[in-house]
Structure formats: structure tokens, C-alpha cells
């Protein structure tokens, strides 16, 4: 079956230089956590079937979700290609496998799934557990989930798409492997997904709509990832989407101001940063960056006043603001 990925890297690295006694403690904590997990049963399934959240439809199936039957270990590329195609891109698992598949691991790492979305100008937004995932599916977003079809001690990692559910029948509907429509008991989904730490994402266009369960930080983090991947236009669109969705937030305007600055458009950068400062007058990063852009635009007096405001806040970027002021005064 599919060895989708190994999650233990982090754990191994953290434990690498510990003494044996600490290892015993860590093992004890791990066993305790496993036992707790074992006692837990399927609380999310119980919750969803017995007292579902208000407004969650009893059943839904996103039948339009594309499907690529996977070959060999290609469950990562197959599911990701389907999601990307669902957001309006033309692609195939083969076309994105080069960016996704790690031959040495016979699988696809979670970070590569997110990177593949970014490189295609899409935002991979994490869902937080089953309740959020079902809410997003009900809202029209298929969710890419990481399951462990084996046991914790003998994992068989697998990516599948959650495309629907039926709460009355206690069933989940998946696109999985070579099966276009796989019906699982909800409890089976919960067990296998819980062993994958409920890791799941939706793939979103930069134009939005923003997933209801996404926080500003979730969206902005991914939008910045899109920018890092070199998709500047998509990133700018994603920042503007955030600015519309969270009209009082300064962060989207700050990011947009930075992006315009790197693109060399100082007038646009200044306008965006003014929007940021207006929304968060106590954000020293916004003030510092506005001061710097004003300096570049030769508006020295306002640049100085703005830099001094940033310093007076004594916030996390005080040192940078002081350096900016020094440059304003020194030039």
C-alpha cells in the first residue's frame, strides 16, 4: 500500500540528544498519550451524529470533484492534482509528481503538498479536525486528508480526498486510491485520520472565497508562501482578498505594501502601508515600513515623524525603527 510519508522526523530530531532517562520519560508520556487516545473512542463521530453543529447539512457529496486513479505510490500527486484541477487549473498527477513525489520515501511529504499548492498560486489552508473539515466540505471544499491506514507502530500513510458524508448513515465519502467513490464508516475515517493527527487541507484560489474556518493568520501565512514561491500576482490577489474579508485587519495591507515595494511601485506601496497604519496605529512594523517608503519617496519630514512614532511604541521592531530613523537623519 502507499507509504505516503514519514512523520517521525521531528520526533526523532527532538529526541536525538537526550539522555536515556529523558527517553524513558518521553516514552512514558507517549504511552500515556496512546492510552488516552485509545480510551477516547470516536468522540468526533459521536458528536457529529448525536449533536451536529448548527447549520451543518445531514448529508452532502461533492460529486464534481475531479478524480485521478493513483498509480503505485502516487496518492499524493493524484489527490493534489484533483484539488488543483478543482480550482480551475489544468493538470495531471504526472505533471506535478516531480514537485511532489519523494522517491527515497516512496511517497509525498506534507510540506511538499503545501509547496505544490503555493507553486501553482493556490493557498493550502489547514483544517482543524473533523468538525471543521465537515463544515468545509458542506461549504463546497473537498479536503485532502492524511490517513494512517495501518497502526501507529506500523504506519501505512495515505492521502485521500474527503468529498462528502451522510450523518444519518454514519458514512464518509472519499476519493481514495483507485476507487472513485469509497464509502467509509465515520468511525473508520476517524480512527484512520486520527492516526494521521487529523492533518488535512483545502486548496483555495487567491480570489477566495476564504474558508469559513480559516483565520487571518492561516490565510496570510499561505498567501506569503505563494509570494515566496514567486507567484507575485497571485499573492497580491490573495492579500487583497484578505483585506476585503477582514476589513479591519492591518496585516493584508502591510503585506501588500511590502510586495509593491519589492516590485518597485513606491506610490502603491505607500498607499497600502497608509491603509495598514490607519487600521493599526500601534503596529510598529507598519509605521517603520511606511517611514522607509516615505524616505525613498523623499518625504523626509513625514518619514522622520513616522519613524519616531514607531520607536515610541517600544514594540518588537524597535531596533529596526531606530535604524530606519538613523538612515532618515543620516542621508
Amino acid at each position: 500500500m502507499q507509504q505516503a510519508m514519514l512523520k517521525s522526523d521531528f520526533a526523532i530530531r527532538r529526541g536525538a540528544h537526550r539522555g536515556p532517562l529523558r527517553l524513558v520519560w518521553a516514552m512514558g508520556a507517549l504511552v500515556a498519550a496512546l492510552l488516552l487516545g485509545g480510551c477516547a473512542g470516536t468522540p468526533m463521530t459521536d458528536r457529529l451524529t448525536q449533536s451536529p453543529p448548527d447549520g451543518l447539512p445531514a448529508q452532502i457529496e461533492l460529486t464534481d470533484t475531479p478524480f485521478f486513479p493513483q498509480t503505485a505510490y502516487y496518492c499524493g500527486p493524484a489527490t493534489m492534482a484533483a484539488l488543483l484541477e478543482g480550482t480551475g487549473l489544468e493538470t495531471t498527477p504526472e505533471a506535478i509528481a516531480g514537485a511532489l513525489f519523494t522517491p527515497g520515501r516512496s511517497g509525498t511529504l506534507q510540506s511538499d503538498v503545501i509547496a505544490a499548492a503555493r507553486r501553482n498560486g493556490r493557498l493550502a489552508i489547514r483544517v482543524d479536525g473533523m468538525l471543521d473539515a465537515f463544515a468545509e466540505v458542506a461549504d463546497g471544499r473537498p479536503i485532502l486528508i492524511l490517513q494512517n491506514l495501518g497502526l501507529s507502530i506500523a504506519p501505512q500513510w495515505h492521502y485521500a480526498l474527503l468529498i462528502g458524508y451522510d450523518l444519518d448513515r454514519k458514512q464518509a465519502i472519499l476519493r481514495s486510491g483507485t476507487t472513485r467513490r469509497l464509502v467509509n464508516d465515520l468511525s473508520l475515517l476517524e480512527y484512520t485520520w486520527a492516526r494521521g493527527d487529523f492533518w488535512g487541507i483545502s486548496v483555495n484560489r487567491p480570489e477566495g472565497p476564504v474558508p469559513a474556518t480559516a483565520t487571518l493568520t492561516d490565510w496570510m501565512g499561505e498567501a506569503a508562501g505563494v509570494e515566496r514561491a514567486g507567484r507575485h500576482q497571485s499573492a497580491a490577489t490573495a492579500y487583497l482578498t484578505a483585506a476585503r474579508h477582514w476589513p479591519t485587519a492591518a496585516q493584508p495591507w502591510l503585506a501588500l505594501g511590502n510586495l509593491e515595494f519589492s516590485a518597485g511601485d513606491l506610490a502603491q506601496s505607500e498607499a497600502a502601508l497608509r491603509n495598514a497604519v490607519q487600521r493599526a496605529p500601534d503596529n510598529d512594523a507598519a509605521l517603520n515600513n511606511l517611514a522607509y517608503v516615505l524616505l525613498r519617496r523623499d518625504q523626509r519630514d513625514e518619514a522622520e515623524a513616522t519613524a519616531r512614532r514607531a520607536i515610541a511604541l517600544d514594540g518588537p521592531n524597535r531596533a529596526e525603527a531606530e535604524a530606519t530613523l538613523a538612515e532618515i537623519l543620516g542621508d
Binding site: 503585506a255 522607509y292 517608503v293 531606530e322
Partner: peptide
């Protein structure tokens, strides 16, 4: 680490994440 210039978007996001 301070130098005059723009505070990067990643740093801004990390800072607000920490505040949250």
C-alpha cells in the same frame, strides 16, 4: 540584526502569530 529597511512580511506574520 536591525538594519534600516522594510520589515518582511514573514516576520510580521510570525510576530502576530506569537501575539495570538
Amino acid at each position: 540584526p536591525a538594519s534600516a529597511g522594510m520589515i518582511a512580511t514573514d516576520q510580521i506574520i510570525t510576530q502576530s502569530q506569537a501575539a495570538e
